[in-house]
C-alpha cells in the first residue's frame, strides 16, 4: 500500500487515553479547589437540600463567570463539573478527528451523530 495508514487505531487509543486522563485530572482539581474555598467560607452554614431550591444563578454563563471572579466556591466547583462533563464529549471530538485521519467515513458520520445528539440536548435542556 502506497498510502500507508499513518494514523492507526492504536494511535487513536493512546490519544483518547490521554484526553480522558487529563480531562479528569484538570476538572477534579478545579472541583477540589472550589470545594476548599466553599468549606472555608461556608463550613458552618446549615444547608437544606431536602427540597429543590430552584435554578442557581451560576447556571447562566455570566453568573458563573461572575462567581469565579469573586472566588465563590460553588461557582468554581460548577466550572470543574462543566469541564468534567466536557471530557467525554471532547473524547468524541477526538474520535471523530481520528476517524477522519483513518479515512473511516462511516464512523466519522456515527461520531458526528453522537455529538449532534448531545449538542441538541444541551441547547434544548432549558425547556421545562
Amino acid at each position: 500500500m502506497a498510502a500507508k495508514a499513518r494514523f492507526k487505531d492504536t494511535d487513536m487509543q493512546a490519544v483518547i487515553g490521554w484526553v480522558l486522563r487529563i480531562g479528569v485530572i484538570v476538572s477534579v482539581s478545579v472541583v477540589f479547589v472550589g470545594g476548599v474555598i466553599y468549606i472555608y467560607r461556608h463550613g458552618g452554614l446549615i444547608p437544606d437540600y431536602s427540597k429543590f431550591n430552584g435554578v442557581p444563578n451560576f447556571v447562566q454563563l455570566h453568573g458563573l463567570v461572575n462567581g469565579i471572579i469573586n472566588l465563590r466556591g460553588r461557582s468554581i466547583i460548577q466550572a470543574g463539573i462543566i469541564l468534567l462533563i466536557a471530557t467525554p464529549i471532547l473524547r468524541i471530538v477526538f474520535s471523530t478527528v481520528s476517524f477522519v485521519l483513518e479515512k473511516d467515513y462511516l464512523y466519522t458520520g456515527i461520531s458526528l451523530l453522537v455529538l449532534l445528539i448531545i449538542i441538541v440536548s444541551s441547547i434544548s435542556g432549558h425547556v421545562g
Binding site: 472550589g34 466553599y38 444547608p47 437540600y49 429543590f52 431550591n53 430552584g54 435554578v55 442557581p56 451560576f58 447556571v59 466556591g73 460553588r74 461557582s75 466547583i77 460548577q78 463539573i81 462543566i82 462533563i85 444541551s122 435542556g125 432549558h126 421545562g128
Partner: peptide
Amino acid sequence: LQRGYIEPS
C-alpha cells in the same frame, strides 16, 4: 446542569 439539579456543594 441547566435545570439546576447538579448542586456543586
